[in-house]
């Protein structure tokens, strides 16, 4: 949080990616686009289903629990304006399978040697303090942190 006590503006890391009030981080979820025609749920708010092309879609918050479907450890600083912890340290990146029927790409916050397929995860929105405002970014973390936390 900003230390000067001033109320800082909060913004999502991308419009249409998160649901819930940004002032209550506990209630923030990823948002999905569910199609009543083909049944597919995809990440982010959309006006047309990316699978069948119909407009029979509605926004639906996604589950905050998932299971690690696959993962890697990013060992090099990613190119471009990466805004992770400084100095850079290797981090887990994984596909998290949600009960909503999709797998979402996300950083995984845990020690990298704890990563394994099938790991139970929960959604973890967090604040990134940029110069002009606070940005609500996200990761997933193990449900059972086993006493270790990065």
């Amino acid at each position: 949080m900003a230390s000067d006590g001033a109320v800082r503006e909060r913004a999502p890391i991308r419009d249409g990616l998160l649901s819930g009030s940004l002032s209550q981080l506990d209630g923030v979820r990823l948002t999905g686009c569910k199609c009543t025609s083909c049944g597919e749920t995809s990440l982010g708010k959309k006006s047309v289903c990316p699978n069948c092309g119909r407009d029979t879609v509605h926004e639906a918050p996604l589950s905050d629990r998932g299971v690690l479907w696959s993962f890697t450890v990013v060992r090099h600083r990613p190119p471009g304006a990466y805004m992770g912890p400084e100095p850079f340290r290797p981090f887990g990146l994984g596909l998290v399978e949600l009960p909503d029927g999709l797998r979402v790409l996300s950083p995984i916050q845990c020690e990298v040697d704890k990563l394994k397929i099938g790991l139970e995860l929960r959604f973890k929105p967090y604040l990134r303090h940029d110069a002009e405002r606070d940005v609500v970014a996200f990761a997933f973390e193990p449900v059972d942190k086993g006493g270790s936390h990065v």
Partner: peptide, 15 residues
């Protein structure tokens, strides 16, 4: 890019 998803080999590795 901000979240660290911009390394192409990460996608190959997850496959």
């Amino acid at each position: 890019i901000e979240l660290g998803m911009s390394l192409n080999p990460a996608y190959w590795s997850m496959r």
